[in-house]
Computed example of a mutant assay.
Amino acid sequence: MDVSRGNFSSSGIIYEVPPIDLPRGFNVDNAARIRKDTGMITVAVGRINDPAQADEILSSDKADMVVIGRAQLADPEFCNKAQAGKAEGIVRCVGCNQGCYDGFVSTEIPFITCLRNPALGREIEYKLTTTEYPKKVLVAGGGIAGLEAAIILKRRGHHPIVCEASDALGGQFALAGEAPRKEEMKTAALAMGEQAIREGVDVKLGTPVTASLIAELQPDEVIIAVGSTPMELKVPGSHLPLVTNSHDVLAGKLTISGKVVVVGGGLVGLEVAEYLHDQASEITVVEMMDQVAKDLGQLRSICVMENLYASGVKTLTDAKCVEIKDNAVVIESKGQLQEYPCDSVVVAIGAKSRNFENINAFCREHHIPCHVIGDAVQARRALNAVAEANEIARAI
């Protein structure tokens, strides 16, 4: 008996293709209970993405067998690596649903794919070939796009050098893991950095890429993966002390309390609202569009909205922040202005590409092939960034 649950006609659909919001192994206790009461040979499923987790389910006599689906889409060598005692090398599914559900269901892409495994379903086409002409490739940025490019380049026989301006690898994917229920994303981003180092990629932290650095390293080609930075809210009062941005909040750079207004009701704004739930006395999310969570996939949207409701977070739609005062924001809605008292304002209206013209200009001047990938092109989903990185690394 395969013990699962969910349906396609209600919010119960989240249990069909469970997103990161649901606990790992969320069906296992149900399987154990049914197995005990019926005596039937029982299979446990549902967000099982680690060999140790699977072993624990079996060794504790909760099920006779575990079935692992998406975790083997993310890494088709999952079982081989586990059997060989190399579990640290497994590329783990993080339940993002970006490639295996969201894009496919919305018809944005004609087939399922995977954020963690762009080769899914196209293994022959994506088969790595060893280069006949090894090159030194400078990768500017140590987020998941830069790391994906570096790992693929290294496996093909090139000599990638990853230069990351901050003191840690993982980029915004790791930062996203600070949001509630998304710890696995941070773990995956950090593990990707560790994997790159294990495979021999030259990594330099605290090293922003400048013209002088390029001149010193003399790379044959350059990949720009510097990511994006939060967009500023351009209204009167936007530079007052009570105003901050979503990235600084999630990075834990400051403590926020009292009444909080979050400007922006997309994915990041809603996650910031959840993140601040235990710190703030009252949270209001202001979104200028007709609904919040428009940039979330269907299943994650259900989970996030349920948690916002349970947390008492208020949302205002068709509402625009037109001014920020010392202790309030001014909101325009349906032609009417209203002030909302607050102690802090968190801006989460999106992100824009970081400026990399200095790198571009030097490469043009010295005829060094230069490739731009990920959020450095345009702020988008991690799925797009990793796919672009993989494509460029296979082409060089």
Rank of each mutant, 00 (worst) to 15 (best):
R5A: 14
S10C: 11
S10W: 10
I13D: 08
P23C: 08
D29M: 11
A31N: 02
A32I: 03
I34Q: 02
G39Y: 03
V45P: 00
A52F: 04
D55E: 13
V66C: 00
L73Q: 14
E77H: 14
F78W: 10
A84V: 05
A84C: 10
G85H: 08
I90F: 03
V94I: 15
V105T: 14
S106M: 11
T107A: 14
E108D: 12
F111T: 12
I112P: 15
L115K: 06
N117P: 08
T129G: 10
T130L: 13
E132S: 15
V137K: 01
V137P: 01
G142T: 03
G142F: 00
L147Y: 01
A150Q: 01
A150C: 09
L153P: 00
G157A: 08
G157I: 03
C163N: 05
A165Y: 03
S166T: 15
A168C: 08
R181N: 13
R181T: 13
K182A: 04
K182L: 12
T187P: 00
T187W: 04
G193Q: 00
E194L: 09
Q195G: 03
R198Q: 07
R198K: 14
E199T: 07
E199H: 04
G200Y: 08
G206C: 05
V209C: 04
A215C: 06
A215P: 02
L217T: 10
V222I: 13
G227N: 02
S228F: 03
S228P: 03
P230Y: 04
V235N: 05
L242N: 03
V243C: 06
A251N: 12
T255W: 09
I256S: 05
V260W: 00
V268A: 12
S281L: 09
T284K: 07
M289E: 12
K294T: 12
I302D: 02
I302C: 06
I302R: 07
M305T: 11
Y309D: 14
T317D: 08
C321Q: 03
V322H: 06
E323Y: 02
K325N: 05
S333T: 13
Q338P: 01
E339Y: 05
S344D: 05
V346K: 02
A348I: 10
I349E: 03
S353Y: 07
E357M: 11
N358R: 10
N360Q: 15
R364Q: 15
I373E: 00
A382T: 15
V386E: 01
V386L: 11
E391P: 02
R394A: 11
